[in-house]
Design a protein around this nucleic acid. Structure first.
Length: 495
DNA sequence: TGTTGTTTTGC
DNA sequence: CAAAACAAC
């Protein structure tokens, strides 16, 4: 007799695609004598959530890597494509019965539709007597567990941070991370069927496809997406690279041509790297404290807490997941929503070099430097007075690191519609930002080669006579006038 | 993690 | 008179 409470278990993988320090995976391995993993693609729901080709490619390629790693431990990984989240409970119920599963494990996800899906799965499996365990893994502390004295979720970052640190500045994060699952005997794979037919006509198979319905995937067959190597080992390598540079993070983080940023977001988002691994690395650099010794490490830990803050907000304020702004009065902003302006912004053809360079970086690489995300978001929502939701959606479609909580939080911050957002009168001047953070125009030259020959001082705001000589558009708007107008519009909301 | 226009400071 | 400080948006 084994002391394991369950004979056969199933690990349901989502955006947690790694072997090490994976809470639910660890619980499955420890809790079950025999187990398999399953991934369910839901392209219809993914599409309605705005997931683009890039984030889906990152997900599927990372999953392929994980399947190899699981295979080396003689653990099967099943794949099935269903249309949407609504199809998942019935399918998992069938899967659990046909595979004779005794327990299901997964790591919790916090957007509203994900929570609803997971509750429905728990209810469906309860009917057939299969317990479901959802683990806290995507955040450092479970959303909902940090509240103000009155029991509400924090709406302001600084008090949230203070409360978080009060609870976590005790070295607990420094403890060892969870080990990878243990290797199974060679006959373990044979204890699980090669494939299963489900009643919905979707087959559960052990082969991960190159693509799913409605999604094209970049870089056919390669272990890269838009030049980014995929998988847990690539994520860990990135974490190690950044660990060597984190002491200087604060000094160079704002300069897009010399970025000393972590570039970990695509890995963090699909789960190739855990948030605890990130925090542990930075805490090790910082004498085990959240604030203090190393300015670089402290500064980056602060960024990790912004991510944490936005994840927690979803649970306390589900209106965020209903396509609504956090501040109700900002629903009355008379957005101009000019279609061709928006298209030019998307294409990097606004005639404002730093904005165009940033948008082209996004379009070409699936990633954008954080400061530039603020600059282009401020430009779209304030100077072009376009609804932040159009920008949010475009970012979701393009980003390799597209995460609903972080992306929505960032956009509502820039648009001044969010909690603890930039005050409406704090509008970035893209030319000032350009001169300050790309002083010699190096970043602009990388992505807007039309302007290569301009002087370091002219490149931020090209002179009038350039437009007849070079195929580059004149500025889409006057930033001084449009700034004034936006501030006026927001000020009028009060009356 | 703002910008701008105005006032004050310091040489 | 340039740089710093400040107020208002």
């Amino acid at each position: 007799m084994s002391d394991k409470p369950f004979r056969r278990g199933l690990m349901w993988l989502r955006n947690d695609l790694r072997m090490h320090d994976n809470t639910a995976l660890y619980r499955t391995d420890r809790g079950c004598q025999s187990w398999a993993a399953v991934f369910i693609a839901c392209p219809q729901t993914w599409d309605s959530h705005g997931d683009g080709d890039n984030v889906v490619a990152m997900r599927l390629r990372s999953l392929q890597k994980l399947q190899q790693a699981l295979g080396q431990k003689n653990i099967p990984l099943y794949f099935v494509e269903l249309p949407g989240f609504g199809d998942v409970p019935a399918a998992l119920s069938q899967i659990a019965q046909k595979l004779q599963i005794d327990a299901l494990y997964a790591n919790a996800e916090y957007p509203l539709n994900e929570q609803r899906r997971d509750r429905a799965v728990r209810d469906a499996l309860k009917i057939i007597g299969v317990p479901v365990e959802y683990c806290s893994d995507r955040t450092l502390t479970p959303p909902g567990s940090l509240t103000t004295n009155s029991g509400d979720g924090f709406k302001v970052f600084t008090p949230f941070k203070r409360a978080f640190i009060a609870r976590h500045d005790n070295g607990a994060e420094g403890s060892a991370s969870l080990p990878a699952p243990r290797k199974k005997s060679a006959d373990h794979l044979a204890q699980w069927p090669e494939w299963l037919a489900l009643e919905s006509k979707h087959n559960l198979v052990r082969k991960i496809p190159e693509t799913v319905t409605g999604y094209g995937v970049a870089d056919g067959g390669e272990a890269k997406v838009l030049g980014w190597p995929v998988g847990e080992s690539a994520g860990q390598a990135q974490l190690q690279d950044f660990a060597a540079k984190i002491a200087d993070y604060h000094r160079w983080r704002d300069f897009p041509a010399h970025p000393n940023t972590s570039r970990l977001s695509p890995y963090l988002n699909c789960g190739a790297v855990s948030i605890r691994q990130c925090a542990q690395m930075a805490l090790a650099e910082n004498g085990g404290r959240w604030q203090g010794a190393s300015e670089g490490a402290s500064s980056w830990l602060n960024e990790l807490l912004w991510r944490e803050f936005y994840q927690h907000l979803l649970v306390h304020y589900p209106r965020i997941c209903r396509n609504q702004s956090f501040k109700p009065e900002t629903e009355r902003v008379p957005w101009s929503n000019n279609t061709s302006d928006f298209q030019r912004w998307c294409d990097g053809q606004t005639g404002v070099p730093i904005v165009d360079a940033a948008m082209r970086q996004l379009n070409q690489t699936g990633w954008m430097h954080n400061r530039l995300r603020m600059v282009v978001a401020s430009f779209l929502t304030k100077n072009l007075l376009t609804d932040w939701r159009k920008g949010e959606h475009y970012f979701m479609r393009q980003l390799l690191d597209a995460d609903f909580a972080a992306n929505n939080g960032g956009w509502q911050w820039a648009a001044s519609t969010g909690t603890d957002a930039a005050p409406y009168f704090r509008v970035f001047n893209p030319y000032s930002q350009s001169r300050r953070f790309d002083p010699d125009g190096e970043f602009i030259r990388t992505f807007v080669p039309e302007l290569t020959d301009l002087s370091d001082s002219d490149i931020h705001c090209p002179p009038q006579d350039l437009f007849s000589q070079v195929d580059y558009p004149p500025p889409i708007c006057d930033v001084t006038e449009s700034r004034k107008h936006a501030i006026e519009v927001f000020a009028n909301l009060k009356s």
